[in-house]
Simulated assay, not measured.
Amino acid sequence: MSDTAKHPIRFVLSDMDGTLLRPDHTPTQRTLSTVRALREAGVLFSLASGRPPKAMMHMVEAFGIDVPVAGFNGGTLVNPDGSVLVAHRLPAEAALVALALFSGEPDVEVWLFADGEWLRRDPPGPMVAVETAGLGYGPLVVESFEPYLDRVDKIVAASRNTQLLMELEAQLQPKVQGLAQVSRSQPIYLDVTAMKANKGEALKALAAHLGVPLAQTAVIGDGGNDPAMFHVAGLSIAMGQAEEPVKRQADVVTGSNLEDGAAQAIERFILKVPHKVFDTPS
């Protein structure tokens, strides 16, 4: 963990789902108030999510964010008004490999994000309703993904079979090494994005844009796509419900998203409000 006395935190980058938001995809009043207090203290605050940018805009407004945010695991940086700063897209070669692997699994729903749309081609499965609730909009049904292969933002394999997704992650990584990032943004989602579409690169880009040294940044997250920013930030904080491999890569572990863990961490480590429910990963 960085010495926050020597390097006070000036910029906080937080994951959304499972971190700032409860399972119903809403923040608590405590979380909203704590982020407001953070910003009033002069600390910059932004979001990094596996979500498409347009599914982040309502939280940009709710939290009063006035700096760029990172969607698609960091693949697309957008201004608070939704205008695009940077977009890193998945090479068609990697997209074809991922689609071929995922399409052979009957327990997996395969989605593609491109042109600002969530696309599906299969009959709707149970995961569509879950994602619709999270994003706030539904998918566009297409006959083929082929017309979009030159501009893919993200491919997702979605399934309640988390063990299967772990196996697919292990199978896919060597097949697209050097071409794509493969990570589980949540236990039920396996994401495939461009090499520079990761939260570590997003933190570097946002910190440079804002003029903040990385030593004075803090990050908060819970998913398999969050350690990329843990390894770059001055201070990394894992949520209490995160899987053990994620927790072990963070400097500290806070409460779960059902316990206002993100607010706890901001109060304790950045706003310096005393709190007792903290551990360091073993």
Rank of each mutant, 00 (worst) to 15 (best):
G116T: 13
A87V: 14
V219L: 05
V67H: 06
D150Y: 08
R121N: 11
L85G: 08
L165W: 02
L77E: 03
V156M: 11
A263R: 06
A265Y: 00
E267D: 10
S256Q: 04
E169R: 10
E244L: 14
I266S: 01
P27S: 10
L172E: 01
L47W: 04
V130M: 12
F63W: 03
V78Q: 07
V84G: 10
P187I: 01
P68Q: 04
V176T: 03
L44N: 05
K175Q: 12
A205G: 13
F278T: 00
L47Y: 02
L135S: 07
L210K: 06
A180H: 04
F113R: 06
T34P: 02
S236I: 02
A205I: 10
A263L: 09
P124E: 09
F63E: 03
R89A: 07
S49V: 00
Q216R: 04
D107E: 15
H88V: 00
L77W: 01
A70M: 03
T193K: 10
V252S: 09
S144P: 06
S185L: 04
S33D: 15
L258S: 12
A100C: 12
A197E: 02
Q249R: 13
A94E: 08
N225V: 00
L119W: 11
P123L: 05
G42E: 02
Y189N: 01
E105Y: 08
L190I: 04
P227R: 09
M195D: 13
W111R: 13
T34A: 09
Y137W: 15
S144N: 10
E143F: 10
T31N: 05
H58Y: 09
M229R: 02
M127E: 09
P245K: 08
A242V: 07
I9G: 01
F63R: 02
G104H: 10
A157S: 06
E143R: 13
L85R: 14
N257H: 11
S46N: 08
D115Y: 13
F45W: 10
R268T: 12
K54M: 14
G50Q: 04
S14V: 01
K272Q: 13
A180Y: 04
K196A: 15
T217C: 00
N79H: 14
L47Q: 04
K175F: 03
S185Q: 03
P147S: 11
N73T: 00
Q29G: 08
Q163H: 13
A180G: 03
S46E: 08
K175R: 13
A208N: 11
I9R: 00
G234S: 04
